[in-house]
């Protein structure tokens, strides 16, 4: 436990001692606000954040892999992986420490979007439920993307390769659930299979949360997704630490 804490602390500090965190936060906050107002946040005259949450998957597809790409690829490149994995830590402590550090960082980024909440609260009388589940959904989705990014960061020394692979993997999971894709797939595949594919996508689970519905199956989807990719990452790193 304390081993995981040591890795987590170092990693989280690492974000803020390099310009990475600040560049990320500025760009993330700018685009989350920009896309929201572009969708007609004020013109719609509705006191809710649906326009804010609607863009989250697209934004996360690019932003989350950029925070996750350095987690292991950099350690491999610089050779510090040999230092880290010869300290008395289990592979799980190292993997979870790094993943949680990145997730805490994403939590900070999401928390800093609080002016959106203040704005709707000032202009109208919003329903707190959908805002809460929207944030919960965004947070879980960030965790899912990070777990994917963590895995792809572990398989290569190149941060660029890890970024590209995780963007593609996340994009597939988002876009496969869009109505246009599903319509197309339903012309090729049996209905059951199309529904199964829809059930695997981020979109379906995130959308219901963003409407204020908190279902066990949606939360379980994200939890399983995170656990699965993190396990894959730990197993893979344990098998090939060097090279």
């Amino acid at each position: 436990m304390s081993g995981m804490w040591a890795v987590l602390k170092r990693e989280l500090k690492g974000y803020f001692t390099t310009p990475l965190a600040y560049v990320f936060l500025v760009i993330f906050l700018f685009f989350s606000g920009y896309l929201t107002s572009k969708e007609g946040f004020y013109e719609a005259r509705q006191a809710d954040l649906s326009r804010f949450f609607r863009n989250m998957p697209l934004l996360f597809v690019f932003m989350v892999p950029s925070t996750a790409m350095r987690l292991w690829a950099e350690e491999r490149k610089v050779g510090t992986i040999e230092l880290l994995l010869t300290l008395p830590l289990t592979i799980w402590q190292a993997v979870l420490g790094k993943f949680l550090a990145a997730w805490i960082f994403m939590t900070i980024a999401l928390a800093l979007t609080f002016p959106m909440v203040l704005t709707v609260a000032f202009l109208g009388d919003p329903d707190a439920g959908p805002i809460f589940t929207g944030y919960l959904g965004s947070w879980l989705m960030a965790g899912g993307f990070l777990a994917i990014g963590c895995f792809f960061s572990g398989i290569t020394k190149s941060q660029v390769i890890s970024f590209v692979l995780s963007v593609v993997a996340c994009a597939i999971l988002v876009f496969v659930g869009l109505p246009s894709t599903l319509n197309y797939l339903s012309t090729l595949l049996p209905a059951g299979l199309t529904r199964a594919i829809e059930g695997l996508s981020f979109q379906l689970h995130f959308e219901s949360m963003q409407r204020g519905i908190l279902r066990f199956s949606d939360v379980a989807y994200f939890v399983l997704l995170i656990a699965g990719w993190i396990t894959a990452c730990a197993v893979m790193l344990d098998e090939r630490k060097a090279c």
């Binding site: 610089v78 050779g79 010869t86």
Partner: peptide, 12 residues
């Protein structure tokens, strides 16, 4: 253990 090339976290 001191690994070859003494790896360490450069930004720290």
């Amino acid at each position: 253990y001191l690994a070859e090339n003494a790896p360490a976290y450069g930004e720290m």
